[in-house]
Design a protein around this nucleic acid. Structure first.
Length: 560
RNA sequence: GUGCCUGUAGCUCAGUGGAUAGAGCGUUGGACUCCGGAUCCAAAGGUCGCGGGUUCGACUCCCGCCAGGCACGCCA
């Protein structure tokens, strides 16, 4: 709704500017694209533009005088824009007609679950790949943050009109899996008191879960593997561990409300020969060369600081080789935009991946990489030290169990993803009453309870879509209407900037505006026409809260 | 040493080149016998790390410092 008015004003501005430029003999191609912004101070209108100042600096002139000329030419429908004026150094401020804000209520009630849906994506295909943790151990908190961000971003893009697929890349090839298999096997032998026959690898995985896996194998197979030569038993231990850990990961993610459309195996790239095909592809284009017995990818030709090895001198492809093959595969599946969500410690990898994308003949912008900064987990203000190798870490599952899915997801999303995040478990629990997630959920529960109450009191509620909203004129009502009407715009920003954290911030503002309104004005006890208008407003707020909470994977309870 | 991220209220963090920089927590003081007090209202709290530059206008863009984090492999 607000977006429509915005478009209206922008068009009118464009017309006025062109007409002015013709009169002045300005070069039309130099005309700036008009922009509207929401002034911080409400006295400065609902939207404001700075075009007069921009024009003044391009063509030299007095900004206020230019603003005056533009304003004289501005053709805007009176029912949309109540008034506009020139202010400050040359801003043009627009004030909307309140009735238009009320329109948003009707729109929300009418569209319900689809309210807020946009078509920014125009049906383009996007893949969001996230978490993608090695199946060598349970997910920890950092993965949780990535999961929350990736899943929410995917939902937001979907709502913004993209066709989205969620994918998990399983690093089930390579040395790490061997080490995992050996770790489990060593523990298995230990259980029989024969640890010295299958020594624990130097850089093995030391977590308790490795013992659990070994015990499982002991229960299933007994001492069957004790007599099998180590080289023959390794594939079994490796694949058993991988599968079981992956099952655990899937369950943890499901408990966290995250589902994937595709689980993509790195090993499958090797098995189907795609890694080799990709290397051949790069060879055919002359993007690789041999040096020191290894095969190098000319990533420096595409902006990387140096070239990178894709096939080692021992003949084994590097991780980069399979990663290029993986991205080639992604593009072959027809995605217009590929989004990778990585831990921030992989940031040095970006230039070579962007280089690879270009070597594949794609625009580097078609690959978007979001970095997730580290999470510092605290307990009562003290950092909890974590090390995957040493097996000392708090898992995602433990955090979800301790503070709850909703609180955990909200925590992860209330910061932009490239900021460090401090997550204090004690604080998250102890302050449940003041936790922002409850503030938003509480607003939703209150709204639901309002309608419960109405029913209990025998108050009949007409079709709220048909109700007159004219009685809404209190400041808190107008303010709430305004915040409500920003929903689409906020979603649009979250979509365009790949910024899920905008959603919780908006929700907090919306819930706040609702609480203020609710606290100040009686609803059920008001005269029928006022009551109905306020119920319609409340219902619309409830719809937006529910829709947007679902975008970030947080539940919207009807009572708490 | 080189590159990337971060630096905003006591703490945790928002802030699409615009007008008087915001929120939560914490602190202080208040709120209807009535729809949910997990709420509301108000107050106090700032050299936006420092210094230059671009601009009509900079927390925002550029350069140089300072501090913290991370990465710099024929590991993944």
């Amino acid at each position: 709704m607000e977006e429509r008015i915005k478009g209206l004003i922008l068009n009118a501005l464009k017309e006025a500017m062109r007409s002015l430029a013709e009169e002045e003999g300005w070069n039309l191609s130099l005309l700036p694209e008009p922009e509207l912004e929401k002034p911080r101070n409400p006295e400065f209108g609902d939207w404001a533009t700075n075009v007069a100042m921009r024009l003044a600096s391009i063509f030299s002139g007095n900004p206020r005088a230019i603003a005056q000329r533009i304003v004289e030419k501005l053709a805007l429908p009176k029912d949309a824009v109540r008034s506009f004026e020139i202010a400050g150094p040359g801003f043009i401020n627009f004030h909307f007609n309140f009735d238009l804000f009320k329109e948003v209520v009707r729109e929300a009630l009418r569209k319900d679950k689809d309210f807020g849906r946009l078509n920014i994506g125009e049906g383009k295909k996007v893949q969001v790949e996230f978490v993608s943790a090695n199946p060598t151990g349970p997910l920890h908190v950092g993965h949780g943050r990535g999961a929350a961000v990736g899943d929410s971003l995917a939902s937001i893009l979907e709502f913004g009109g993209y066709e989205v697929e969620r994918e998990y890349y399983i690093n089930d090839a390579g040395l790490q899996m061997d080490i995992l298999g050996r770790s489990v096997r060593a523990r298995y032998f230990e259980l029989f008191g024969r640890g010295e026959e299958a020594p624990f690898p130097e850089d093995g995985y030391r977590g308790d879960y490795i013992y659990d896996l070994a015990r499982e194998i002991k229960e299933r197979d007994g001492d069957k593997w004790l007599g099998v030569p180590l080289e023959e038993s390794l594939p079994y231990f490796r694949s058993y561990a991988c599968e079981r850990i992956l099952e655990g990961i899937k369950k943890d993610l499901e408990d966290f409300g995250v589902r994937f459309d595709v689980w993509f195996s790195e090993r499958s790239l090797y098995e189907k020969g795609e890694v080799q095909r990709t290397i051949d592809f790069l060879k055919a284009r002359g993007y690789v060369y041999e040096k020191d017995g290894a095969l190098w990818f000319k990533s420096s030709a595409f902006g990387d600081e140096k070239d990178r090895v894709v096939v080692r001198s021992n003949g084994l492809p590097t991780y980069l080789a399979s990663d290029i093959a993986y991205h080639k595969n992604k593009y072959e599946r027809g995605f217009d935009i590929v989004i990778d969500i990585w831990g921030a410690d992989h940031h040095g990898y970006i230039p070579r991946m962007k280089a690879a994308v270009q070597a594949l003949g794609k625009s580097p912008d078609s690959l978007q990489i979001l970095l997730i900064q580290f999470v510092t987990l605290l307990r009562a203000g003290k950092p909890i030290s974590m090390s995957t190798r040493a097996g000392e870490f708090i898992t995602l599952a433990e955090v979800v169990k301790e503070v709850g899915k909703d609180a955990a997801r909200y925590m992860f999303l209330t910061r932009k993803c490239d900021s460090h995040l401090e997550f204090d478990l004690e604080l998250a629990k102890k302050q449940t009453e003041e936790n922002p997630v409850y503030y938003v959920q509480y607003a939703h529960a209150r709204i639901c309870s309002l309608f419960e109450q109405a029913k209990e009191r025998g108050i009949s509620i007409p079709d709220l879509r048909e109700v007159s909203l004219d009685p809404l004129k209190e400041v808190e009502e107008i303010e709430l209407l305004k915040v409500l009407s920003e929903a689409e715009g906020e979603l649009a920003i979250a979509v365009r900037e790949f910024a899920p954290h905008r959603i919780p911030y908006y929700l907090h503002r919306l819930a706040g505006a609702f609480h203020s309104f609710y606290n100040r004005h009686p609803i059920l006890t008001a005269p029928a026409n006022v009551r109905n208008a306020r119920l319609a407003l409340s219902k619309a707020v409830g719809i937006v809260i529910r829709n947007f909470l679902s975008l970030i994977g947080v539940s919207a309870p009807e009572r708490m």
